[in-house]
């Protein structure tokens, strides 16, 4: 079993959107996948996965022994091989203990899961540390702006010192950089950092660029992970991310901007 943390430091950059889409993408490939919400107190993974009405028990209930893991895991309505472990909205984040999280991870492994995707809360507090503690790989989500890049750098440093792999001196956590909310047009106009700038600053292998899109907002309002939005650039970009994660060679898409032709400008885009 591989544990993948989706983290960023900064909030609002697309961690939960990415966790939902990425976990769904792995499950679509046939891997038995669990996606775990570590944002205790502010759960929203279940909303984006469209299963908020089916939450009976949550992660904290399991940690505190009030429910079995099998009772708390919710089967995804889109993909059979995907399960969601929602966070608690009412409990204190102190409920996340190292021993508790480790026990849940062991149990997931015993249940035959191939991948566990940990959706980290923003910040560098307890929840974020617990989410990355057992990670084998990390997807660091970054927006094309300086503050987001700086926070990602900070979280990469923490991965290198506070993860179990780092503490025990094992092979370091494998890092992937994911740039989200990317607008090729604004990069072209010099208003945004380009993905090349970001990669140069962070020096972590790029796993993908997700274009800025209204489709993401619609998807999350409807409780559908973005990867299921057939025919959208966002869904394709996330599918590419999953492919690259699994070792396939995919060229980058949606990173260049072409000025609309005169006819398009006159008659509007279709």
């Amino acid at each position: 079993m591989r544990i993948v943390v989706v983290t960023s430091g900064k909030g609002g950059v697309g961690k939960t959107t990415t966790s939902a889409a990425f976990a769904s993408g792995l499950a679509l490939r046939g891997f038995k996948t669990a996606v775990v919400d570590f944002d205790v107190g502010l759960r929203n993974l279940d909303l984006i996965m469209g299963c908020e009405r089916r939450v009976v028990y949550d992660f904290v209930n399991v940690l505190q022994g009030e429910a079995k893991l099998t009772q708390a895991l919710i089967k995804d309505k889109h993909v059979d091989t995907l399960h969601i472990l929602p966070a608690s909205q009412t409990k204190d984040k102190e409920a996340l203990t190292e021993e508790g999280v480790e026990k849940v991870m062991r149990e997931l492994e015993a249940m035959g899961f191939d991948y566990v995707v940990c959706d980290s809360p923003a910040g560098i507090e307890r929840g974020a540390l617990m989410a990355l503690l057992f990670a084998d790989e990390a997807i660091v989500v970054t927006n094309p702006e300086v503050s987001s890049v700086r926070d990602s750098d900070r979280i990469l440093g923490i991965l290198q010192s506070k993860s179990r792999r780092a503490i025990e001196g094992r092979e370091p956590v494998k890092e992937h950089l994911l740039v989200t909310r990317y607008s090729a047009k604004r990069v072209e106009e010099g208003e945004m950092l380009s993905y090349k700038d970001i990669q140069e600053l962070l020096r972590v292998p790029l796993i993908g660029v997700i274009p800025e899109s209204d489709a993401v907002l619609h998807a999350s309002n409807q409780g559908v992970p973005a990867i299921h939005l057939k025919g959208t650039d966002v869904a394709e970009a996330y599918a590419d991310v999953v492919a690259r994660f699994l070792g396939e060679d995919k060229p980058l898409r949606f990173v260049s901007y072409e000025k609309p032709s005169l006819i398009k400008r006159l008659f509007g885009s279709t």
Partner: peptide, 8 residues
């Protein structure tokens, strides 16, 4: 051997 990051 690795980049020294913000906060390190």
């Amino acid at each position: 051997d690795r980049p020294v990051r913000a906060g390190q």
